[in-house]
């Protein structure tokens, strides 16, 4: 079964992860622009990162047959940093027109400050202007209140809810979002946020309509195979394969197709897998025979 991994930070992962993901059925990944573990001190660092997402990282994924897409944004943590926030907003429009950029994200709230709200609204306006859906990061602390505040801001901006993916959900937030018309995202982690067994329970109770699961793997304790691992658990729990496929392929493909840039027909085939290619003098092969 093919998997569209709709939220994973491959920038922080090693090449082995791509190989294991491809073997597990991952055909495409979406990498949201995010915080890099520490604050950046100037806009140039963001621009270089954005160029990496549409260049090197896409190339690296292709070498393992995986289509790489991304969303671009000023993340909520660095929205608080006046050294970069406004300049990043001004740099974004050009990147929001790139063909592999399927949304605006991660935007949203983290510490739930006024500045975060200001830049959340600014980026909802950008998403409208560039006709893109949004991937919304919700706070890890005081989550329920932050979740509600994100929804209020989306409504204030008159942003269409079907174009909103509210991510990092849990058992409490699903009760809020289920009837809204937005898409509910769940980040499956080995120990935190959401785990496989809890996710199975949520699916059994709420179904898979407008629901997305992701691995959200980054530098922390995380696992890029959490989506396939959750699929196994769902199958063992008796969920029909067609519903599992809807959850891991149909739903994310439909959500990120809303901007009109995702060519679904191209996903029918693996991305270019010629690993003889190198990028800026670097090859992930490190001199080995590509056919070995």
């Amino acid at each position: 079964m093919r998997i569209f991994e709709p939220h994973i930070h491959m920038f922080s992962r090693v090449t082995d992860d791509y190989e294991r993901m491809a073997l597990a059925g991952v055909r495409a990944v979406l990498e949201p622009a995010f915080w890099l573990g520490q604050n950046r001190t100037n806009v140039g660092s963001f621009v270089d990162y954005f160029d990496t997402l549409i260049g090197w990282e896409r190339f690296r994924a292709q070498q393992f047959g995986i289509h790489h897409f991304c969303t671009m944004a000023l993340n909520p943590r660095e929205a608080n940093d006046d050294r970069v926030n406004q300049a990043v907003i001004e740099a974004l429009p050009r990147y929001l027109e790139k063909d592999g950029v399927l949304g605006v994200g991660e935007i949203g709230l983290d510490d739930q400050t006024k500045k975060e709200e200001h830049y959340f609204l600014a980026q909802l306006a950008l998403a409208k202007k560039h006709d893109l859906p949004v991937l919304v990061h919700t706070p890890h602390r005081d989550k329920k209140k932050g979740f509600q505040r994100c929804i209020d801001l989306v409504r204030d901006a008159a942003f269409p809810l079907q174009r909103v993916l509210l991510d990092h959900g849990n058992e409490e937030t699903i009760k809020i979002t289920r009837e809204l018309g937005c898409v509910s995202g769940f980040s499956i982690y080995p120990f935190t946020k959401m785990d496989t067994n809890r996710m199975v329970a949520i699916v059994k109770e709420y179904g898979v309509e407008r629901m997305i699961i992701n691995s959200a793997a980054d530098w922390g304790v995380s696992d890029p195979l959490m989506v396939p691992k959750t699929m196994v658990k769902l199958e063992q729990a008796g969920l029909r394969p067609a519903l599992i496929e809807q959850l891991v392929w149909g739903n994310p493909v439909a959500f990120f197709s809303q901007g009109g840039r995702l060519d679904v027909a191209r996903l029918e085939h693996p991305a270019n897998i010629d690993r003889r290619q190198t990028f800026e003098g670097n090859s992930v092969l490190r001199g080995q025979d590509p056919d070995a």
């Binding site: 190339f59 010629d274 003889r276 290619q277 190198t278 990028f279 800026e280 003098g281």
Partner: peptide, 12 residues
Amino acid sequence: LLAEVQRTNVQS
């Protein structure tokens, strides 16, 4: 740009 290509050898 030829100098870039000398370093940037994505085959395409």
